[in-house]
Design a protein around this nucleic acid. Structure first.
Ligand code: FES
Ligand code: FES
Lengths: 147, 147
DNA sequence: TACTAAAATGATTATTTTAGTCAACAATTC
DNA sequence: GAATTGTTGACTAAAATAATCATTTTAGTA
């Protein structure tokens, strides 16, 4: 039941981007530095988010990453979906055919309830909520307190 | 966010045991056959459940596995805890020291909420609930419908 | 006692997933 | 056209997963 680094880094990158996008595009390199993620790896991590249309990238000087949707319109359930795929704890919840026993398996029902519970949490939280929570905590993750 | 086979097989084995333990001990071999899990692997899977005191095993002829606690007293949250460890989606939820950023990381708070949501589901379901659900579905997993 | 049936344990293995790195390429600005 | 920035795909090391197998221990029974 662990999240991979894709999910963890991806959400953090998105939050960092939202926090610093007042000036338009943000350098991937800066996100990587602030979030302590290697730049080459971060490039791979955000790929699905770019593909999903959450952000736009421009290359070259003055390039960077730009948030395309308003943070209030980005739900964590979508983000995790793009980054990790389904949050179902077992595959047969989404796709009954992978288990022959699906029709009569009560444990499958349980895993479905777990999936639903996680979904409700992540579906009720937007990137905007994260931004506000972070501002309340006072640390916007600039990294200056860590050097 | 996937469960490993330990969690899936372990819960199924426990349910199978509860369903068939009217006669006392149950052969591991029978659980393995009904649940379509290889016997040698099942032996490893149930090890933590035996260690946790949920079941007792006796070797030799007329041996097998015996449920030690009443199904109504066995919560799925415990079972998954024994089989998979913490259900926290990231380690820093349980152990803040693994991330330097814990004190100000709002994503960590989210993962804590996810953990709590999953816990609430699993903590509210007992093995007895599974038994009853299975009986309602009519298939007690004898395997006879699959041969 | 010897035999057999069952579970326990530990070593080993193959496969898959994860978490990255690296190099070459493409686009953009100045 | 040179510097800068993101894109892509190949590659790799390490870890986790999902087992299998051989050996040992224990308990009952003929
Ligand atoms: S049907 Fe997939 S675990 Fe039971
Ligand atoms: S503190 Fe662990 S992910 Fe932020």
């Amino acid at each position: 039941m662990k999240l991979s680094t894709r999910g963890r880094y991806g959400v953090r990158a998105l939050l960092d981007l939202a926090l610093h996008s007042c000036e338009g595009t943000v350098l991937l390199r800066d996100i990587a530095r602030r979030q302590e993620i290697s730049l080459p790896y971060l490039e791979h991590v955000i790929t699905p988010l770019v593909a999903a249309g959450l952000m736009k990238t421009t290359r070259g000087p003055r390039g960077g990453v730009l948030l395309l949707k308003s943070p209030a319109e980005i739900k964590l359930s979508e983000v995790i979906g793009f980054l990790e795929g389904s949050i179902a704890p077992v595959d047969c919840v989404d796709n009954p055919d992978v288990c022959r026993r699906s029709a009569f398996c009560v444990t499958r029902d349980i895993w479905g309830e777990v999936k639903e519970a996680v979904h409700q949490v992540l579906d009720s939280i937007t990137l905007q909520d994260l931004v506000e929570r972070q501002r309340e905590k006072g640390q916007t993750g600039t990294g200056m307190y860590y050097i």
